[in-house]
């Protein structure tokens, strides 16, 4: 395996540790959800982010709590990278009253406005205009905040993609559109469903910058996001970043994934794995020692175990909660 090239990225030790920790939190969280789902402990539809960690972490490394993101049906990774509480997230997926949305939203509808997380979304392509509205707010109020719209390759063929990116371009909004191209819209290959060679190419049509990066390389994502976010903060408008990535699990838990080839699945869990590559980079660059990494790993595993315990011990929402939170007045 080649060591990642740093391409002008100079991480401090704290940044490196934060990024490694967040990527691991996502992986451990998702692996745990996978396990709990398989055991029948978690119900419903769950779409896991494992394998795509470098995208959420590489982008969110540049964001503060006042910057906003919109997420997708595969949103756990975005939530974690944006700083949502692991206990509250896990409890939400458990459908418990202590969840971030009182256990009434579930996996696909996690939101935490205090962290600038505008919400995961059950509808493909749901985030584009929302991110524009958030960015228009920042522009109107003359803050230097930005909005990031994460979306999958499936959404790049949805009508809202066009409406949202065009709006951002004509109004010069501080939005970064981050495509997570994991190769499959549900089970349909990107090449079948998209007329473009790359999603980044579509930026030309909106007269905004578009770049494609290796979404398994957290440094490449970090670098592209840094440029785009700085442009947006300077008032220079939107950017489209396409991150080439891969999901380790199916479209949803229970998906037989017959559309994926075995060697492809395997290499993404080994030499192409974003966390393995980043860990090797950190060691080679002497940014963190084996011991330091091990202590992060241990602490993340503990945090996930704590989140599960917290969720299991939490109560379900009470019956009368059924009729609340529909309007501001009730």
């Amino acid at each position: 395996m080649e060591v990642l090239q740093n391409k002008g990225v100079a991480l401090t030790q704290d940044q490196a540790r934060w990024m490694y920790r967040k990527m691991l939190e996502i992986r451990e969280f998702e692996d745990k959800v996978h396990e709990l789902f398989a055991q029948g402990i978690l119900p419903g539809f769950v779409h896991l982010y494992a394998g795509e960690e470098a995208v959420a972490v590489g982008v969110c490394a540049h964001l503060n709590d006042k910057d906003t993101i919109t997420s997708t049906h595969r949103g756990h990774g975005h939530c974690i990278a944006k700083g949502c509480d692991l206990d509250g997230m896990m409890a939400e997926i458990y459908g418990k009253a202590t969840g971030l949305c009182k256990g009434k939203g579930g996996s696909m509808h996690i939101a935490d406005l205090n962290k600038g997380m505008l919400g995961a979304n059950g509808i493909v392509g749901g985030g584009f205009p929302l991110a524009c509205g958030s960015a228009l707010t920042a522009k109107y109020k003359k803050t230097d905040n930005v909005s990031v719209c994460f979306f999958g390759d499936g959404a790049n063929n949805h009508g809202t993609f066009h409406e949202g990116i065009n709006l951002a371009a004509i109004w010069n909004l501080p939005v970064i559109f981050v495509a997570e191209n994991n190769g499959y819209a549900e089970a349909t290959p990107f090449e079948y469903a998209s007329s473009c060679k790359t999603i980044a190419d579509r930026a030309i049509g909106y007269n905004i910058p578009g770049v494609r990066v290796d979404g398994k390389n957290v440094l490449a994502v970090y670098k592209a996001a840094e440029e785009a976010i700085q442009r947006a903060r300077r008032g220079e408008g939107p950017t489209l970043i396409e991150c080439m990535t891969y999901r380790n699990y199916g479209h949803f838990e229970g998906d037989a994934q017959t559309y994926k080839a075995e060697p492809e699945k395997k290499e993404h869990k080994q030499e192409k794995d974003a966390i393995i590559q980043f860990k090797k980079y950190l060691l080679t660059q002497r940014l963190l020692t084996e011991n330091e990494l091990a202590s992060v790993e241990e602490s993340v595993i503990e945090a996930i175990q704590r989140a599960v315990r917290f969720s299991e011990e939490s109560p379900y929402p009470k019956e009368d909660e059924l009729l609340t939170d529909v309007y501001v007045s009730y």
């Binding site: 418990k96 939203g105 929402p317 909660e321």
Partner: peptide, 15 residues
């Protein structure tokens, strides 16, 4: 059903 969006599973049977 009640005049609310269909809730997540813990309250689904109540809906």
């Amino acid at each position: 059903g009640f005049d609310v969006p269909v809730p997540f599973f813990a309250l689904e049977e109540d809906f």
